[in-house]
Amino acid sequence: MPLSPLPRIIIEPLVRAALQEDLGLAGDITSMAVIPADHHSTMVFAARQAGVVAGLDAAELAFQLVDPAITLTRKLDDGAAILPGDIIATVSGPSRGILTGERTALNFLGHLSGIASTTAGLVAAVAGTKAAIACTRKTTPGLRALEKYAVRAGGGMNHRFALSDAVLIKDNHVAIAGGVAEAIRRARAGVGHMVKIEVEVDTLDQLREAMEIGVDAVLLDNMSPDELREAVGIVAGRAITEASGGITPDTVAAVAASGVDLISVGWCTHSAPSLDIGLDVVETAA
C-alpha cells in the first residue's frame, strides 16, 4: 500500500512548537554571531546506520519555517531502506537558517526513522505469516500522528488513534462491569452500529465467553504461542485475533506462527531508539 503523507495542517503545529522551544526568547545567538548573514551552504542528510527513513516532511518544514529561502531536495523518500553513508536529502540556502533549523529537523528525522526502522525489523521477522505488526496508543504526547505515520513507513499498520475511534474493552473495564459478557453487552448498547468492538481477554475461558456473545476483535493478552494457537482455533475466523503483551524481537516470529491476525507492540513507538542521521556540510559560499 502506498505511503500517504500527513497533511501539512497536522505537521506544522508540531514543528512550530519544536522550533519555538529551541529558539527561546532570543533566537540562535550562536549562528547570528558566527555566521555572516549573506553566507550560503549546501549540506546533506547522511545515514550513519542502516534503517528506514521517515520524517522528511517534518524536517523540510523545520527549515522552511526558519527561512523560506532554504530548499530540501530528497534523494530518497519516506519508507526507503538506507545503509550507512547513504544520502537521504540535500539542504541548500542561507547558512544561518540551516544551522538554526538543523537540530529540530534532525530530531524529527532521527526519531521517526528510528520508529520506522524498529517496525521494519518486526515486519521482517513475521514475513511468511499472515500476521501484521500494529502500533498502539503508547506514543509521545502530542506526536501520535507523526509516530503512527512512521510505523506505516516501516511497513506496519495502525491500531486506533484515539479513544473515540473504536471500543476496546480492557481488563479494568471487565472488572468494573462484572465480566466479559456484561461489558460487551453494555458496549453494544452504548455505541452506534458503525463502531467496532474489541475485548481484551487474559484466559481462554474469557475468550469463549466473548465468542458466545460475539465481538469484532479479541485482544489476546500475554498468552504463550501454544495458548495463542488454541485461541485462534476457538475463534475460528469469527473475529480478528490480536496478540499483545511481552512481545519481543526474539518471540514475535513464534507469536506470528500461531496464526493470529495482528501483533500489537507498544514499544515500537515509545522505546524505539533514534536512527543516527547527520547533517554534513558539502559546500559553502559567501
Rank of each mutant, 00 (worst) to 15 (best):
S92Y: 00
E182N: 13
L106P: 08
A210T: 07
L143D: 05
I184K: 03
I115T: 08
D202E: 15
L228N: 08
T118H: 08
A153G: 02
Y149E: 03
K170L: 10
E102R: 11
K138W: 09
G121C: 05
R208V: 02
T100P: 01
S224W: 10
H173I: 12
E147N: 11
P225D: 07
T100R: 06
V218Q: 04
D221S: 03
S164A: 14
D171L: 01
P141C: 06
V151W: 11
L220D: 09
K130S: 12
T90F: 04
D216W: 08
E102S: 07
N158A: 13
T140M: 09
A132F: 04
T119L: 07
Y149W: 12
A89Y: 08
A177L: 14
A183C: 11
A131S: 12
T129W: 00
T136W: 00
R152M: 15
Q206D: 13
A89T: 11
T139H: 02
A153L: 05
P141G: 06
N172A: 08
G121M: 09
I98H: 03
A162S: 15
V123W: 02
E200T: 08
E198Q: 12
T129Q: 03
S164E: 12
D165E: 14
R144M: 01
G154N: 03
D171V: 01
V191G: 02
D216P: 12
I176T: 14
A189F: 04
P141T: 06
S117L: 10
S113Y: 10
A217F: 03
L228H: 04
V218K: 03
A116V: 06
G97V: 08
R185W: 00
A181Q: 15
H193P: 15
I176L: 15
L146K: 02
V151T: 09
A150D: 04
H111L: 14
G101M: 09
A210E: 05
R188V: 01
E212N: 15
N158C: 15
T129N: 00
G155M: 01
A125K: 14
G114A: 12
A175E: 13
M157V: 15
T129A: 00
H193S: 12
E102H: 08
D202Q: 15
L122V: 11
G101K: 01
V151N: 08
S224A: 13
R185Y: 02
A162L: 01
A105S: 13
G190Q: 10
A125N: 07
E209G: 03
I98W: 01
L109T: 13
T140D: 02
G155Y: 06
L106Y: 00
D216V: 11
I98E: 03
L122A: 14
R160H: 08
R188D: 02
D221V: 08
L219Q: 05
G93I: 03
V151E: 04
H193C: 05
T203N: 10
R186G: 03
G121V: 07
A175I: 12
T203I: 07
V180C: 09
L122Y: 15
A134V: 01
F161P: 00
L228C: 09
T203Q: 05
T90N: 03
R188W: 00
K170W: 05
V180N: 09
G190K: 00
A127I: 01
